[in-house]
């Protein structure tokens, strides 16, 4: 099998002149507001256990959503709130799940890291979902040709052997597998430079799997870049789509060991101020609406009885 290897990088300085649609912007801002609300609830001692917010990475699932179809499976990980919200637009169900209240998506059993709804599923162990997605895509390839499985992993996930076993199978069996790597440059507290030799592109190339890399936060640019490759995934040509992204917040809560400069650099790359600057009036209006919605969701859910 011969697969051409693409590698491109997008200049990330600007967002599209036209800007995102109201719906896209609302999605982005809703996820941001949701994650901020979680940290707020934590600080007030209202959440049990732990959580991992996707602050800074919200645009990744929002950019991907229109490239996915209802029949596609989505596999998420420990940092999956944005993935779920982009897919199901259900902050009530997710917050109820995280808080163990009535209306919880999984009855409060799974919590932040273990969510299943329709064809969306997340698990809390690194690298575990890729082999599972190979099984699902093996089924899809025969039973529902054209459908794919999209698996979100991080840069740190590449430490797990199961990732390589799965990439090998995906290439070998020509599975419709889309691997989305959210490379935020840090695994919990360890910078990528201290836990990864070589590159993600090199890893994909080793298996003859197509690879795309982007550091853009521009939804349209990302979609334009990915659309042909995602179409190829549906024909059984797996893809590793690498997003050079930034984690604004701590790994979970209060455990950020990065220096001020590093955190400032992450904030400097954030989509939020760029989109705000591009269209201040519309942005402020939609942001206020998203925050108001999440405030209302939180007020509603925190008042509910246990699941």
């Amino acid at each position: 099998m011969s697969v051409s290897i693409w590698e491109r990088s997008h200049a990330s300085g600007q967002v599209s002149a036209v800007g995102p649609s109201d719906d896209d912007l609302t999605q982005l801002l809703t996820i941001r507001a949701f994650e901020r609300k979680l940290l707020d609830l934590f600080e007030r001692g209202m959440l049990n256990g732990t959580t991992h917010t996707c602050l800074g990475q919200e645009y990744v699932p929002v950019a991907l959503e229109p490239l996915l179809r209802p029949a596609d499976h989505v596999f998420s990980n420990h940092r999956g709130h944005g993935h779920y919200l982009a897919r199901h637009r259900d902050p009530e169900g997710l917050l109820a799940e995280i808080m163990g209240r009535r209306g919880a998506v999984c009855g409060g059993v799974g919590g932040s890291q273990h969510i299943r709804r329709d064809r969306y599923l997340s698990t809390g162990v690194q690298g575990e979902s890729l082999p599972v997605a190979c099984g699902v895509t093996l089924h899809l390839k025969r039973a529902e040709p054209g459908a794919l499985a999209c698996v979100y992993i991080g840069d740190g996930t590449f430490g797990e052997g199961g990732v390589y076993e799965a990439l090998n199978l995906a290439a070998l069996w020509q599975l419709p597998l889309l691997v989305v790597v959210e490379n935020n440059g840090i695994a919990q507290s360890t910078p990528t430079a201290r836990n990864m030799a070589g590159t993600i592109a090199g890893r994909a190339a080793a298996f003859g799997i197509a690879h795309l890399r982007t550091d853009s936060v521009d939804l349209d640019a990302i979609r334009t870049l990915l659309a042909p490759a995602v179409a190829a995934v549906r024909q059984g040509r797996p893809l590793v789509a690498e997003f050079a992204t930034h984690r604004l917040g701590p790994h979970s809560k209060g455990d950020d060991t990065r220096g001020a400069e590093e955190i400032a650099a992450a904030h400097a790359a954030d989509w939020y101020p760029r989109y705000a600057a591009a269209d201040p009036e519309r942005f402020a209006r939609l942001d206020a609406a998203a925050r108001a919605r999440i405030d209302a969701v939180a007020a509603d859910v925190t008042g509910r009885e246990p699941a």
């Binding site: 599972v132 190979c134 099984g135 699902v136 089924h139 052997g161 199961g162 090998n168």
Partner: peptide, 28 residues
């Protein structure tokens, strides 16, 4: 031949593949 897959030496992955097939409604 369509349903019997001889696999790489990847016990972790093939068990995961079985789980994926099961999730999708197949038996493995």
């Amino acid at each position: 031949p369509e349903r019997v897959l001889t696999t790489p030496i990847s016990e972790n992955a093939i068990t995961g593949v079985a789980a994926g097939l099961a999730l999708a409604g197949d038996g493995a």
